[in-house]
């Protein structure tokens, strides 16, 4: 569905993405793992069409990332990206106006599950509430690929399980979910495929179960082993 070949993104003297090649297929939950600054967010932004790669190829359903892919790929950034005047209701109207795959009823249901008020201004919300609002609006799109950048950031330990369960409930055989996080233990039990990124390069990737069997350790332990000296 999504093919990335030797993606590179450079900024001045920094290489954010040095070499990422991977394929994303429907019916799986992917974990993009790595410490801060490893290139996870840059990779997601390239997939979302917010950044153009310096080199490499990226296609969604055999078409270059662009207008078509944006209609089918939902991306939740780490930052609060809503316009300052927006309430949850305004944000929902915005998504309804621009994304054909946006399900307004599902959005209202998700907001209810997250204990968020439809009429509350997002800029006045706590960081945890903003994180939930971002998650609700992104998951309310029935997209082919759903990318969640650090979905557990700002979410308290009690609500994390709820968030994880909501993400799982939205995983289908037709879509792929990509989550980035450094809270690996939280993702361990839900992911089907793990991609370890280090200094902008994929250092290891594969089916989570196969990796556990072949290496004889959990994803958390693999994470510790790979990034111990960073």
């Amino acid at each position: 569905m999504l093919k990335c070949e030797n993606l590179v993104k450079k900024y001045m003297n920094t290489t954010a993405v040095a070499d990422i090649s991977t394929n994303i297929e429907p019916g799986k939950i992917y974990a993009l793992l790595g410490p801060n600054g490893s290139g996870k967010t840059t990779f997601m932004k390239i997939v979302a069409g917010l950044i153009k790669p310096t080199a490499g190829n990226i296609t969604f359903e055999d078409k270059p990332v662009g207008i078509y892919s944006k209609a089918h790929i939902a991306y939740m950034p780490t930052e609060n990206f809503f316009y300052s005047y927006m309430t949850c209701k305004d944000a929902g109207h915005y998504y309804r106006d621009f994304f054909n795959d946006f399900d307004e009823e599902k959005y209202h249901q998700l907001l209810k599950e997250m204990d968020l008020d439809l009429n509350q201004k997002i800029s006045k919300m706590s960081s945890g509430m903003v994180a939930k609002a971002k998650l609700a609006i992104t998951l309310a799109r029935n997209s082919r690929i759903i990318m969640l950048d650090e979905p557990l950031n700002g979410i308290d330990i009690i609500a994390r399980e709820k968030v994880i369960n909501t993400v799982i409930a939205n995983a289908t055989q037709d879509n792929a979910i990509i989550m980035s996080s450094h809270l690996v233990d939280e993702l361990e039990k839900v992911i089907d495929y793990a991609i370890f990124i280090r200094k902008g390069e994929v250092v290891m990737q594969g089916e989570a179960e196969e990796l556990r069997t072949s290496r004889g350790m959990s994803i958390v332990d693999m994470y510790k082993q790979i990034y111990a000296h960073d």
């Binding site: 944006k70 209609a71 950034p77 809503f82 316009y83």
Partner: peptide
């Protein structure tokens, strides 16, 4: 600014 994501994420040229 980050609000640019709102516009540039949409499937519009």
């Amino acid at each position: 600014s980050k609000t640019g994501y709102m516009t540039f994420m949409t499937p519009i040229s």
